[in-house]
Write a protein that binds this DNA or RNA. Structure first.
Lengths: 225, 225
DNA sequence: CTGAAAGCGCTAACAG
DNA sequence: CTGTTAGCGCTTTCAG
């Protein structure tokens, strides 16, 4: 079903059909009704692909989440899906690859001319971040930060969180302290650790056991709903 | 960056550029190299949107998962992402809406001319399932079954599972039995229940307490990674 | 408000 | 193997 076919059926021009499905386009409600009626009969839906080609906007946002094992991410994903749908955007998900080889992912992603990229649980090589910038594709990091100021990022206040944990433990009367790191060189981990150390330092505590955990646990097997 | 620009830069026809990026196309390796070189310099990537418009294949698979709260689904999603990427397909995710209003979702989904639809944690209204069929879009249900034979589905053997649980409990010497249902009218729940009842019946047990749980638990709040 | 016409970037015959 | 040509389905000037 194409707009031309609908136009023919409705006895109007193809442009009229296009205008019918373009919010705010200049069209009389009479013509509009005719088109809508024909569209319904023929089961017509505008072709988003063709539209994208000419408007240069795909209304697709790429979301890159290397893994979903961390329970936090599915929650985020669901929320993201809801929010994007509300704005009539669509979510192209890239997941299930190791953190290392994200470059080929971007190659794919660029080909779809996505309107924006949300990076969670992965980072962008500086080369690619530059390419996105020069291509005019907005990139936002989620739960990550970076020094490059071209890239926006959304995170929680990890340092504050670490500090509060420290206060909490001290207030609980604890006497010996430790810290189990996540991915050691992630900004998330650095910030939490810093806050924790600072918090304890405020109480004159400097002796803190340290271990690296990498957020690891035995790999989950597929489970049944 | 368009193929024409690359063609000009490389001193070949635009078709040559197209052929360079079409696996199996008839092109000399000399021309190919020239094109590849120019493409690299200019940072060219084929426009998947334009390609889709003419080939009528988007290489996009829509995955519909109403919610991701059940830990099983993120696992599936990750696996799906991996598998699709390996075949050079892309995953358009629809999530974060209530089970009821999935019809508008399909409206969106149809506009993108997806090559196929995977439905998990949601069902398709018969009307839409028909429309997909007539549009030639393959649909597969995941973790759901249906009577309509036009629709394929992938599930685990729930009946067998229910039966085995029964055997297990009996073998453990238990004497009184109960069953907590999930969503009561889902095929998944029906099959498990049936298997469980059958299994127990095999041992002459017919008295089984019954309660509906709806897989519920207090709604999870956003958690930090 | 409406239609005609030009093209978005690409693939797919078609000749050479 | 290569270039030329004709569209894919749509939006967007441009006249009327």
């Amino acid at each position: 079903m194409t707009s031309s076919q609908v136009a023919e059926h409705a006895g109007v021009s193809q442009s009229a059909v296009s205008r019918t499905f373009t919010p705010g386009a200049s069209i009389s409600s009479k013509t509009r009704q005719k088109v809508l009626a024909s569209a319904k009969v023929l089961g017509y839906r505008p072709n988003a692909i063709a539209r994208s080609l000419i408007t240069n906007r795909s209304r697709i946002i790429a979301v890159v989440m290397a893994y979903l094992e961390n329970l936090f991410y599915p929650d985020v994903l669901e929320e993201l899906g809801r929010a994007l749908a509300a704005e009539n955007y669509h979510l192209l998900l890239f997941t299930g690859f190791m953190d290392r080889d994200s470059d080929p992912v971007f190659d794919q992603l660029m080909q779809y001319r996505v309107d924006g990229i949300i990076l969670a649980s992965t980072s962008l090589s500086s080369e690619l971040s530059e390419e996105c910038a020069s291509a005019g594709i907005p990139v936002v990091l989620f739960n990550r930060t970076t020094e490059r100021d071209a890239v926006s990022s959304v995170t929680t206040r990890n340092r504050e969180g670490g500090k509060r944990i420290a206060e909490f433990l001290v207030a609980g009367g604890h006497k010996s302290f430790g810290y189990i790191a996540g991915l050691e060189n992630s900004s998330t981990n650095r910030d939490r650790h810093q806050g924790y150390v600072e918090g304890l330092a405020g109480h004159g505590i400097t002796e803190i056991a340290y271990e690296i955990g990498n957020y690891s646990r035995p790999k989950r097997k597929l489970r049944r709903a």
